[in-house]
């Protein structure tokens, strides 16, 4: 029983934190532009309004399931990753080899989204999906190599073990022990958050908003919530992998906040790559960086 309550609280807190982070990032972007920017709570208002709008357009089964896929993927990641060290639920769910499952599930959420957007039949959505999948295959590679390098170096494929190995002070954090792999993973974090210069999926100048073009009202509301949850899941995963995990809720909030601001700040000062530029960069630079550490660990 207490497990269920704990799960519900975890998900609710992640949702609120994710939406709040989205609102803060909109304000920060606006301030960088020299504007006032919306309220910090703007995302909550948007989600509530969208949820209460009438929904009368849909395009088939996969279209319905896409937001669910994404939310499911996000919740799975949240339950696998040790959010706070000692948190009973997530530490009980952990098992040997769950790092691979996490990488797969993150891909799964995006894949569901791609199938749903493809089912909507809008040409812009289809273009965006093909771009997104091409880009995903390139950044997933560098991210996976970075994770494998870390896991091999620490002799554990269990995320709980990776967190536990970083508890001996700041110098034992993986970002200092595996600097090249961390750099590769952090570069792959930018396209994961669809930040510029890698924002070729949403690309407002060419394919106005890409995959969710046909999504309306409640679907869009769910998609926004899913994106917020997924964002938090990714942040927690990165904090656990590279930044020593979180020993308390406060340190979790501080770490995830700082990590979230990194793509926001980068994205508001960079223009956008073209598709082939983005993919070429992701194939060469982060992958090479991650490989350096993998080779070092192997030797």
């Amino acid at each position: 029983m207490s497990n269920i309550i704990s799960i519900v609280v975890t998900i609710a807190a992640s949702l609120i934190w994710g939406l709040l982070l989205g609102g803060i990032s909109r304000t920060v972007t606006a301030r960088i532009h020299g504007r006032m920017g919306p309220r910090v709570t703007q995302n909550f208002i948007d989600v509530w309004k969208l949820f209460r709008k009438k929904t009368s357009i849909h395009h088939g089964g996969m279209f319905w399931m896409a937001p669910m896929f994404r939310i499911t993927g996000a919740i799975c990641v949240l339950l696998m990753v040790p959010i706070v060290i000692g948190n009973s639920v997530t530490w009980n769910m952990s098992f040997a080899g769950d790092v691979f499952l996490l990488i797969y599930i993150m891909f799964f959420g995006c894949l569901g989204m791609a199938l749903g957007a493809g089912n909507s039949g809008h040409p812009y959505a289809v273009i965006a999906v093909s771009r997104g999948l091409a880009q995903m295959s390139s950044y997933e590679l560098s991210f996976s190599i970075a994770v494998v390098a870390i896991a091999v170096g620490l002799h554990t494929f269990r995320i709980e073990g990776i967190v536990a190995a970083q508890q001996a002070g700041i110098s034992s954090w993986n970002i200092f022990r595996f600097p090249f792999a961390s750099a590769g993973a952090l570069l792959a974090f930018l396209p994961m958050q669809m930040a510029y210069p890698f924002g070729i999926v949403l690309a407002p100048q060419e394919i106005p908003i890409g995959p969710p073009t046909e999504y309306s009202s409640r679907f869009l509301s769910l998609m926004f919530s899913g994106r917020a949850l997924f964002g938090v899941a990714k942040l927690v995963l990165f904090v656990s992998l590279l930044f020593g995990g979180a020993s308390s809720w406060l340190s979790l909030f501080v770490k995830t906040f700082l990590l979230y601001m990194y793509p926001v700040v980068v994205s508001s000062v960079f223009p956008r790559f073209r598709t082939e530029q983005s993919i070429r960069f992701l194939w060469f630079v982060p992958t090479t960086l991650a490989l350096v550490d993998l080779v070092r660990v192997m030797l």
């Binding site: 606006a30 919306p38 703007q42 357009i57 407002p204 106005p208 908003i209 046909e214 999504y215 869009l220």
Partner: peptide
Amino acid sequence: ERFGIAMRPTPRQ
């Protein structure tokens, strides 16, 4: 945007 007014490229949203 400070009033929460945003542009959407599609009438669905």
